[in-house]
Design a protein around this nucleic acid. Structure first.
Length: 1062
RNA sequence: GCCCCCGUAGCUUAGCCUGGUUAUAGCGCCCGGCUGAUAACCGGGAGGUCCCGGGUUCAAAUCCCGGCGGGGGCACCA
């Protein structure tokens, strides 16, 4: 036979949490749960792998993992076999940069000197160490994922999955090689895809106007504007707008003729200080097409001498917003320029190497770093007379997201996948996904997909998945390898290949099937977004093992921050459509960002960073969980110490609720298995039926919220229920019932009800607060239940019992609460404290519902309002408790009756106000005679006020009026005093720290007349305080006991002694 | 420039989809009360241009349009 266990009085969450974490670990609770659920319906959760570039997770990542934890815990309790492998995104530039920093490296050359193999090992070591450290943090927060075997993007198996994927893209004809003009980081010496260009800095650059001499004309020039003088050596053309008007103008000062757009003329005159000009000719830009000019740096830059420079036209790329309307075009250094070059068959020059230095092609400027060459080029232009003007401009300029080096555009050969061809499929598949919130999919994601670009997958780096492409050194033919076996089969020399990373992989040489030449791997690694994008199959070991994948695909649920719209959400879809022609996930929950108290992003560099440890240290793990989970999921989370504290305080209340129940149930050896709720339903008190209904209603709300992933709604409903319904109201109502000493039905039903509610609530809370609920479960519930499993997390998630939901009963309780509130307010106004009973409470109402509420909960009203009687009357009867007060309005009467006014007021004061009021209200005026003169007072001359009758107070709400009798006779005073004495004795028991069931002897001294009143309540005092004897004495010296305390009650001195009886 | 989210009391926030009585609650402040689970709680008070302006409607915090402010995303930056 079990009884309810006792839980500790003091709330020490950190201690309990640590205890529970240890318990889970030692008893393999998580692992056994997986076993219990094997064979159940699948739920494929996929973890968005964080980047292990630090050993401590950001607090936002903690929120992310806690959200995931709630979902997987809920699903398990609902009986799903949850695939719950976490992951880490191990490759890529951030790790490389961190290692470079650690080793003090400045460029790729340093890496080559150290040896790529050593560098790779450093990267691997760092990624694994950080991943292991982050795992510790996540586990410590109670996040229940399969931490023993996270998926890591750096394993051979994972790399092979990527190879298979790239080969798949190749087979679908989507893999391409070609010259692309893309952002390039001269420090990292690699291409950056457009979605990697996210950081901009305010930089100062030259802003120059340059004169390009028109071929065959004397002193006639096309004027261009640029902020990147270093791109001039690669200039091949000038773009103009065909439809806008252009002009030839003569500068009076110099006699030179300039060509530029008319709408820009005024601006250029001002900016370049041209002085007076004469417009020689106006014509459409079209007319300039084909006009040839000479490159101003032809002498300095040898490649420029072999090129014919012409004016071309473009509608899209020429604007009249800035510059001169004549756009300097360098196809090797600009995407648009490249576009135009393709259209016109212009040559693409790129005399800049991977480190951002000019090559020998740039002649004079060879070896100069591009940004340093600016000034040299400017002075050359000036010297040669081609510089019209030089100024400065501060503008936003893109920098490398890792190392903050200003980026440049460079034309290079890259590998890319033509995903623009799949745009329609992306849109179709994305529309099938359940997005939460809906606008994340219909607006944000869709919008992103509408602006698709092709996917450049090659990166000129080291720490990444090597592209599985081998190119023939002789004929240029290439093959894409899909697996390690395939590779080794085709290798010329059989090599050992324990690891598929660079540099080892580069040593594998293949034979060209076309020409018999040697094929070498392209030196590139894959864009790191490819890694995480294929996680939905690669983390399952596919394609090497297809069993898991066939069982689980597609992913049922993922959740990440809104930055992942363009990131992981997209890269998963991209990979899945390429490889399987369908969306990889069914439900996507987009959550917010974690910001600081002011709403700024949290960064270590900003100094506003709050480490998860700090929060746990100051409060506890579950307070952090409760805090983050209460935030509207898709809105940004402002970190707030105050809110963490509030969460902590709610946890404290939760603990106290369970402590309260456990104390009394344990004391009475309550065995919940002996009683079935159904058998007692008919004898429950109304408040019992109410709280049972409430817990089931909340259950319904919580399950609905969780099914639609509105996690915060579930959490808020549970917090409200625990604090307001359970702690503040229900427990307060039943306190007296559980304090009863003997075995009585009303105590038993309170226990049965409370146990039912608490057991259900505990399971409802388990996914959100896995540690506290476990701690309570182990101590309080497990000893009570025979079939209790080893952990609360093995129990099923509760579903609402519709039969027990009684909405009417809940609604009516709200009315009762409202009445109690109003009565408290009236008591306050009357200055009568709650302990003093009042004779009568009258509710005047015509509402059937209010009537029913009072009938149903009369007992509660009697005790909570502490009145002897509650009566309901029709609202019209409120009159009985009202009297009218009339006030003459001097400002109205005075001007009419002047000297008579005083007499009129005197007359009025002698009448019954009721009569005056009635007449006024009925007829609109009253007439009477004073000193022979007829006085006629209209409605506006007299104010009518309603006031409660003496000894009554009245207040009203929408549906009813509350009338409270405030009469205090000796009887009421006696009872009030007795209660005051009881309260003091209870307090003294507490101070003495007596056990709940200890009995005592009481001695009371007080003013004679009061004591005489109190004496009739001796029995009451005794039973309320578990006193075997209550003695009243005539002098304070006679008061004895283990504790003797002097009290002041209602202005008089009392001395009370309490003695424990053994 | 385009797109998305947010804007309600000193602070934090519910309600907005689906218009309707006196706009929600917490924190903080002041006054009072209750208490043998409670470092808890209850009542009262002070505190509001529901960002602004139009429109629709009998009725707008809520729906529509246009602004403003904050955050984010995308594009561009010759």
């Amino acid at each position: 036979m079990g009884t309810v266990g006792l839980i500790p009085k003091v709330f020490e969450p950190k201690k309990f949490e640590e205890e529970v974490l240890k318990f889970w670990d030692e008893n393999r609770i998580y692992e056994k749960l997986r076993e219990r659920l094997r064979g159940r319906p699948k739920f494929y959760f996929l973890d968005g792998p964080p980047y292990p570039s630090s050993d401590v997770p950001h607090i936002g990542t903690c929120w992310n993992k806690i959200l995931k934890d709630v979902v997987v815990r809920y699903r398990r309790m609902r009986g799903y076999y949850v695939h719950d492998v976490p992951g880490y995104d191990c490759h890529g530039l951030p790790i490389e940069v961190a290692v470079e920093k650690k080793l003090g490296f400045k460029s790729k050359k340093d890496i080559e000197e150290l040896g790529v193999d050593k560098f790779i090992e450093e990267c691997r070591k760092l990624a694994l160490a950080n991943a292991a450290s982050m795992t510790k943090y996540f586990k410590d927060l109670g996040v229940s994922l399969n931490w023993d075997r996270p998926y890591l993007t750096l394993t051979n198996e994972y790399i092979e999955a990527a190879w298979w994927f790239i080969k798949k893209a190749h087979e679908r004809g989507l893999l391409k090689r070609g010259l692309k003009v893309l952002h390039w980081c001269p420090r990292c010496e690699t291409v950056l895809a457009d979605y990697e260009v996210t950081e901009y800095r305010e930089l100062e650059d030259p802003s120059i106007y340059v004169k390009f001499p028109v071929k065959g004309r004397e002193r006639e020039y096309i004027v261009i504007w640029t902020t990147t003088p270093w791109t001039l050596p690669a200039n091949v053309a000038v773009m103009v707008h065909p439809d806008h008007t252009y002009v030839r103008v003569k500068v009076k000062k110099t006699g030179e003729v300039l060509i530029l757009a008319k709408p820009r003329l005024e601006h250029v005159i001002k900016e370049c200080n041209l002085g007076e000009v004469e417009v020689l000719e106006e014509f459409p830009g079209e007319a300039l097409q084909g006009l040839e000019y000479e490159h101003p740096l032809a002498d300095e830059v040898p490649i420029q001498r072999q090129i014919r420079h012409v004016v071309v036209t473009s509608r899209e790329f020429v604007t009249m917003e800035e510059g001169t309307g004549c756009v300097h075009t360098a196809p090797g250094h600009g995407e648009e320029d490249f576009e135009v070059a393709k259209r016109y068959g212009l040559p693409v020059l790129c005399p800049v190497d991977s480190r951002g230095r000019f090559t020998s092609e740039a002649g004079k400027y060879a070896n100069l770093y591009v940004r340093e060459a600016n000034s040299v080029i400017i002075s050359d232009l000036e010297r040669k007379g081609y510089l019209l003007h030089v100024g400065k401009i501060v503008h936003r300029y893109p920098v490398c997201w890792r190392c903050k080096t200003p980026l440049i555009y460079r034309a290079t050969e890259q590998w890319f996948i033509e995903i623009t061809k799949l745009k329609d499929r992306f849109l179709e598949e994305a529309a099938k996904v359940n997005w939460i919130p809906a606008w994340a999919g219909s607006a944000r994601f869709r919008n992103w997909l509408m602006n698709l670009r092709d996917w450049v997958i090659s990166r000129q780096r080291y720490w990444g998945i090597p592209l599985p492409i081998w190119v023939c050194t002789k004929c240029g033919h290439y093959v894409v390898i899909g697996s390690r076996e395939e590779l080794l089969e085709r290798a010329i020399e059989k090599v050992e290949l324990p690891d598929l990373h660079k540099p080892w992989i580069d040593r594998v040489v293949l034979r060209c099937e076309k020409c018999g030449g040697e094929m070498r791997r392209v030196p590139d690694v894959a864009d790191v977004w490819l890694d995480s994008g294929i996680a939905f199959f690669a983390s399952l070991g596919y394609p090497r093992n297809s069993e898991l994948f066939n069982k689980l695909y597609p992913v049922d649920f993922i959740t990440e921050g809104h930055d992942q719209i363009a990131g992981w959400f997209f890269s998963l879809l991209r990979a899945s459509v390429i490889a399987f022609d369908q969306a990889p996930y069914r439900t996507v929950l987009m959550h917010g960002f974690t910001l600081d108290e002011q709403g700024r992003e949290m960064h270590k560099s900003l100094g506003n960073y709050v480490a998860p440890n700090e929060v746990i240290e100051k409060y506890c793990r579950e307070a952090l969980r409760l805090f983050v989970l209460s935030n509207t999921v898709w809105e940004d989370l402002r970190f707030s110490w105050k809110k963490v504290e509030e969460a902590y305080s709610d946890l404290n209340i939760l603990w106290n609720v369970y402590y309260f129940a456990s104390t009394y149930m344990n004391l009475d050896k309550f065995d919940p298995e002996k009683y079935r709720l159904e058998d007692y339903l008919h004898v429950l008190e109304p408040e019992d039926r109410w709280i049972i209904s409430r817990v089931n209603s909340v259950n319904k709300v919580v399950v609905n919220a969780l099914e639609s992933y509105h996690i915060h709604e579930a959490v808020r409903a549970l917090r409200r229920f625990t604090v307001e319904d359970l702690s503040h109201w229900y427990i307060m109502l039943i306190r007296r019932r559980v304090w009863i000493e003997e075995e009585r039905l009303e105590k038993l039903t309170a226990y049965i009800t409370l146990f039912y509610v608490l057991e259900k609530l505990l399971r409802l809370l388990a996914p959100f607060l896995p540690m506290i609920t476990e701690a309570i479960y182990q101590r309080m519930f497990r000893p009570a239940l025979k079939e209790a499993p080893e952990s609360i997390h093995y129990l099923e998630y509760p579903l609402p019992d519709e039969k027990l939901i009684d909405e009417r009963c809940e609604r009516l309780m709200d009315v009762v609460k409202e009445i109690v509130e109003k009565v408290s307010a009236l008591r306050m106004k009357a200055g009568v404290k709650r302990r003093w009973p009042l004779r009568e409470l009258v509710i005047a109402t015509d509402s059937q519902e209010v009537r029913e509420a009072i009938d149903m909960y009369r007992k509660i009203l009697l005790t909570q309002c502490n009145v002897k009687k509650v009566e309901v009357v029709p609202s019209s009867e409120v009159r009985k408790f009202i009297r009218y007060v009339i006030e003459p309005v001097f400002s109205k009467i005075g001007p009419v009756y002047r000297g008579l006014t005083k007499k009129i007021v005197e007359y009025l004061s002698k009448q019954r106000p009721e009569d005056i009021a009635a007449a006024l209200l009925e007829k609109g005026c009253i007439e009477f005679e004073i000193e022979g003169q007829v006085v006629r007072l209209s409605r506006d001359m007299i104010n009518i006020r309603e006031e409660p009758q003496t000894d009554y107070l009245i207040t009203e709400t929408r549906n009813f009026k509350v009338i409270l009798s405030t009469t205090l006779t000796k009887e009421e005073i006696a009872e009030g005093l007795a209660r005051d004495v009881v309260r003091r004795i209870q307090y003294m028991r507490k101070v003495l720290d007596l056990p709940l069931d200890a009995t005592i002897e009481v001695v009371v001294y007080g003013p004679e007349s009061e004591i005489e009143l109190i004496k009739q309540y001796t029995h009451f005092i005794a039973s309320e305080t578990r006193a075997r004897k209550v003695k009243f004495v005539g002098s304070r010296d006679e008061v004895t006991g283990d504790l003797v305390t002097e009290w002041e009650i209602d202005g008089s001195k009392y001395v009370i002694g309490v003695k424990r009886i053994q």
